[in-house]
């Protein structure tokens, strides 16, 4: 069976870790600009961490601000970029749970991770257009356990050298020597490879 998904490997990915490391060094030396670049670099990841913990957009924004302000006080104790990413993810997750516990009464008891984002691309009122390939991926993701959905969603935004640290921060170590695929990614690939090509069971429309 041919894999219909084109593989797009980004040459810039492995450099992200090195870039973050030099930004961290500069930020610790007091560079406002370097700190700003770290904010730009890591906020999309932290956004996904907060949102996948079930926070509303507004709460997620507050959590990110709080976490960044707290980083300032911890900057002296964070010595490498991997530790930085791990610390930010852990702190965001903890803060998200705290806020979520506070706001619990306003949320459905068992809010689904994907409940508030459109599960159908074309045709929905959202302007998000998902092509067939992405819809297949979206459908496959929806068949994974909640924990796997959360892990993959977060790992996808993590600088590659930090996969292992972030997975560990999420309580799902991905291998003691180097990052292994892990069961979530293995399951996702099996779902995408198996079933009638391109339309796994449960695919929308």
């Amino acid at each position: 069976m041919d894999d219909p998904r084109p593989v797009r490997v980004r040459a810039t990915q492995p450099d992200r870790g090195a870039r973050l490391a030099s930004l961290l060094t500069a930020a610790r030396a007091g560079s406002e600009d370097a700190l700003g670049q770290i904010v730009t670099e890591l906020s999309p990841l932290l956004w996904q961490v907060a949102r996948s913990a079930g926070l509303s957009s507004g709460d997620a924004e507050d959590v990110l601000q709080t976490v960044w302000m707290r980083l300032i006080k911890h900057l002296d104790r964070i010595h490498d970029a991997t530790a930085l990413t791990g610390w930010m993810v852990t702190t965001t997750k903890r803060e998200a749970w705290r806020v979520r516990a506070t706001a619990r009464r306003q949320l459905p008891a068992d809010q689904d991770l994907l409940a508030d984002v459109p599960d159908e691309g074309p045709g929905s009122e959202e302007q998000v257009i998902l092509d067939d390939q992405r819809r297949a991926l979206w459908a496959a993701i929806g068949q994974l356990s909640r924990r796997c959905q959360e892990l993959l969603r977060i790992i996808a935004f993590t600088p590659r050298p930090d996969y292992a640290a972030v997975a560990a921060a999420l309580g799902m170590p991905v291998g003691s020597i180097g990052p292994t695929r892990g069961r979530c990614l293995a399951k996702l690939r099996a779902l995408l490879d198996g079933g009638p090509a391109g339309s796994p069971a449960g695919s929308p429309s």
């Binding site: 998904r5 390939q133 695929r181 990614l185 099996a190 490879d193």
Partner: peptide, 19 residues
């Protein structure tokens, strides 16, 4: 079947980029 214990390969990285 892709095994959970293998190192990440290009397909995994491509999949993560898509995600």
């Amino acid at each position: 079947v892709p095994s959970a214990d293998e190192p990440l390969d290009d397909t995994d990285f491509g999949l993560l980029d898509e995600l």
